[in-house]
Design a protein around this nucleic acid. Structure first.
Lengths: 214, 214
DNA sequence: TTTGTATCGGAATGATTGTTCCAAAATAAA
DNA sequence: TTTATTTTGGAACAATCATTCCGATACAAA
């Protein structure tokens, strides 16, 4: 026998007026807890992270976790979205905040190197990790990643096109092609820098890749 | 109380002469079964592949699996080694079997594209997948991946150096730097081609990357 | 203060995890 | 054929998995 649905704020609906009674408030900051989930999924990936891990590290109760974020998959997707939002903003800021196109790309890769040497547990890039872990698999994630690829490559391309328009970059070059290529390279860079964190080596790799802009 | 070790071929050892008795032989081809394990781990990764999955797809018994390959981790490492051996051979053959350096790299990337459009389940590259899944984590795997990076990049570099020596590539270029950069790009290419399998798009990305050899 | 309801802590659930064990079948040498 | 020993199939195992449930607690509104 199936249970009846549990209606919240029963009296409010029943009497049709503002007699809603507010219960106990949440005892944690939802954003803060979500950021902790980001850290954990980012480091270990979806499958290797257990709900037990999350309960331990998030500092909130099991039931609160389910009530607030849904199940494991739902929480992962929220955490992933949170990461994409914040890291997307950072990438845009780094790339467009410099005097020249090349300086922008250098800033972006310097930031990735900084993250690599700072983060002693080598989490890499959450998006790249998720790409290799969850394709093939979840279709929702796949379409998010497709959109991300599209946006990232076209962001790269538009910055380069600006450089071409300003005469900063040779007009024989194709912004779209180079943008897509550098975005692809960026993905590889986040893979390789999980293996080898030597900053000089990483800087040299970046310099060689960015020579395509000269 | 700990169990005594089980000595195999007991009588042989005991009497010190060739009285060994041969038992029942294995009813499966070890190499064949290992290749099926490669397929499964390659597609799903280490954590998402269960022993139950393996028992189902390998077609051999649970006990045989443990007797022949050890536990899950041991089997994964053997499967991973098998993949590295065979794919390493392929990469070397593709890269060095052409008339020019650039043609070699084109062959290599064409092969990757072919694999991408042939394999409808988008497994990508087992090595790249393993890098992002198991770092941070297993130190044995990490050192194998370090060695792989070293070998791959220096193979790329030596091919390029040959091209420079033959006057095929401008002598102002540094083989080691370009080799490392292209190897990094290759990693990214295997990530991106999990998301987008459009062969024309992929070919265009490769062409742009390889323009560094001109 | 009373009241109703959401949060909380933790136990409970059933499914699945990796691994081990054992009796029965199989087989190469004696 | 007998013998010794491994392979094999499947049950059994304890641990862990994601999820649900429930009584106690806490709190905003009445």
């Amino acid at each position: 026998m199936e249970a009846l649905p549990k209606y919240r704020f029963f009296r409010y609906i029943w009497f049709g007026k503002e007699t809603r009674i507010m219960p106990r408030t949440k005892q944690f900051d939802e954003k803060e807890v979500l950021n902790k989930a980001v850290e954990l999924f980012w480091e270990k990936g979806f499958h290797a992270t257990s709900m037990q891990d999350l309960v331990c590290h998030l500092g909130i109760n099991r039931a609160s976790l389910y009530d607030t974020f849904g199940g494991k998959e739902e929480l992962f997707k929220k955490a992933f979205q949170e990461y994409r939002n914040s890291s997307g903003d950072i990438v845009k800021r780094l790339l467009t905040g410099e005097a020249s196109v090349k300086a922008g790309f250098e800033k972006l890769f310097d930031f990735a190197i900084e993250e690599t040497i700072t983060d002693e547990c080598r989490k890499g890039c959450f998006v790249v990790n998720t790409t290799t872990e969850l394709i093939p698999g979840d279709e929702t994630i796949h379409s998010i990643l497709s959109e991300n690829l599209e946006n990232g490559a076209s962001m790269f391309a538009s910055v380069i096109q600006d450089g071409i328009d300003k005469g900063e970059i040779d007009s024989s070059k194709k912004a779209k092609d180079i943008g897509l290529m550098l975005f692809t390279f960026y993905n590889g860079f986040r893979v390789v820098s999980k293996i080898d964190t030597n900053p000089e080596k990483l800087k040299s790799i970046v310099a060689t890749a960015l020579s395509i802009l000269d």
